[in-house]
């Protein structure tokens, strides 16, 4: 059986899909969108989510769940994870051009 995968971004997730995919309620997502923790607040009727926001929502959910963290604290941790990823990318670029003496 061959299944063609759908790229999330070509097709963005709606609120119900994102919530289901993360195993959370739609209210959980809406609260975090309104608080600006998941993405830029938008009109709830037009909410669509990208691949990057799916990753962010799952990370937020894990931090909140694993550590009983409040949403703002979880968002701060996830911000830092994203910053670490960005900096690791920069380090790779520098190391590509670096020779040890």
């Amino acid at each position: 059986m061959t299944i063609t995968a759908i790229v999330i971004d070509d097709l963005q997730l709606d609120l119900a899909d994102l919530a289901h995919s993360c195993g959370v309620s739609q209210e959980w997502v809406v609260e975090r969108v309104h608080a600006g923790l998941l993405c830029t607040p938008m009109n709830p009727g037009q909410v669509r989510f990208t691949s990057a926001e799916l990753t962010r929502a799952r990370r937020l959910r894990n931090i909140e769940r694993n550590f009983d963290a409040n949403p703002e604290l979880a968002a701060l941790v996830v911000d830092m994870m994203e910053e670490i990823e960005r900096l690791k990318g920069q380090i790779n670029r520098i190391e590509d051009n670096c020779v040890d003496l």
């Binding site: 059986m1 061959t2 299944i3 759908i6 790229v7 691949s51 799916l54």
Partner: peptide
Amino acid sequence: VINVRIPKGVKAGQHIRLNGQ
């Protein structure tokens, strides 16, 4: 076992979805 057709143009970190799996 399933065969997954991965469309061209995917980026690292992007999610692809297999409906019903």
